[in-house]
């Protein structure tokens, strides 16, 4: 199969991204993630298959609309005292309800696209990449959960002279990650916690594979600019010791930068759309914590 015919599941493409990599970029979000971070701001990215989201704010109410109710073959969509409710225990994810919805209150996260289709959208903004040094950034979910698709996409993008960047959590097959790096102009690699036990508590997996992959990429791709990133999460890695440990772990090389991202709750609404509870509750970073931690990170 040619690269441009490869397919994968993408849950969003976002133009004019100005905070992830150089210049004006288009983000391509891959669906599916091996981690289950409690703070995840893209919960719709976690499961590998397309799934339904439901926003009650956009719903016209079953009395006015209700198109989705007869559309469900299993009778999972209910009118409970004038409000729409979904019986998640019986839903088999057929998505017929979302297809019937006129308002977009029910929408589908995730669509199967070919490499050519993704790049057609990405290439719409080439006039902006040319001036800004921007390009395409792959994100997720976890890009390397769909390794063949990722590699094909990166290879074809490079063939078309599109600048490429990729974000990864690092929990993936090392050989495939190395293959992807061959077609990358820069890599953004999350290191969340050096203590494997605590890493597991926060994300569902230990960090051994992640750290091993990180060192391997550093070793095998000395020319590849790498941005190591730590999302600072209250109660998980927001102490000076946590950050100092990560900063000390990072190898010394000129094209490796380290950046802290502050925890935010922007994704909270999406948990509700998916019918899930937001695991972080009302937790917030302490005032001034980020600046203090940034000075620790800088001292590496």
């Amino acid at each position: 199969m040619q690269d441009k015919e490869q397919t994968g599941i993408v849950f969003n493409m976002q133009k004019y991204s100005v905070h992830d990599g150089a210049g004006i970029r288009t983000m391509v979000f891959f669906k599916g993630c091996p981690l289950r971070c409690a703070w995840c701001s893209n919960p719709e990215s976690q499961r590998p298959q397309p799934e339904r989201g439901f926003s009650r704010y956009r719903c016209l109410s079953p009395a006015v609309c209700g198109y989705c109710i007869p559309a469900c073959p299993r009778g999972c969509i209910l009118d409970i005292e004038g409000l729409l409710a979904i019986d998640y225990t019986r839903c088999d994810g057929c998505l017929l309800c979302a297809q019937a919805c006129p308002t977009g209150a029910m929408n589908v996260y995730g669509q199967r696209l070919t490499v050519a289709e993704v790049l057609e959208t990405v290439e719409q903004d080439t006039v902006f990449y040319a001036r800004s040094g921007g390009g395409m950034t792959l994100s997720g979910g976890e890009v390397m959960q769909q390794p063949e698709f990722a590699v094909a996409l990166l290879r074809e993008a490079r063939h078309r002279r599109i600048n490429t960047a990729m974000e990864t959590c690092g929990h993936c097959d090392g050989d495939m990650l190395a293959e992807a790096c061959r077609h990358l102009d820069s890599l953004i690699f999350d290191i969340k916690q050096l203590d494997s036990e605590r890493h597991k508590q926060g994300t569902g997996v230990g960090n051994e594979r992640i750290l091993e992959n990180f060192l391997r990429v550093c070793r095998e791709f000395p020319e590849l600019p790498i941005l190591a990133r730590t999302p600072v999460i209250p109660g998980f890695n927001d102490t000076e010791d946590d950050i100092r440990a990560i900063a000390r772990f990072l190898p010394k090389r000129a094209n490796l930068r380290y950046e802290l991202l502050p925890y935010h709750r922007m994704g909270q609404a999406k948990y509700e759309f998916l019918g899930r509870a937001f695991p972080m509750g009302g937790a917030q970073l302490a005032d001034g914590a980020l600046n203090r931690l940034r000075s620790v990170a800088l001292a590496r």
Binding site: G23, I24, V127, A130, S132
Partner: peptide
């Protein structure tokens, strides 16, 4: 951010 605004303006000019 200023840089990105300049880039947008250049592209608009293009």
């Amino acid at each position: 951010g200023t840089r990105k605004l300049v880039d947008i303006i250049r592209s608009w000019c293009d």
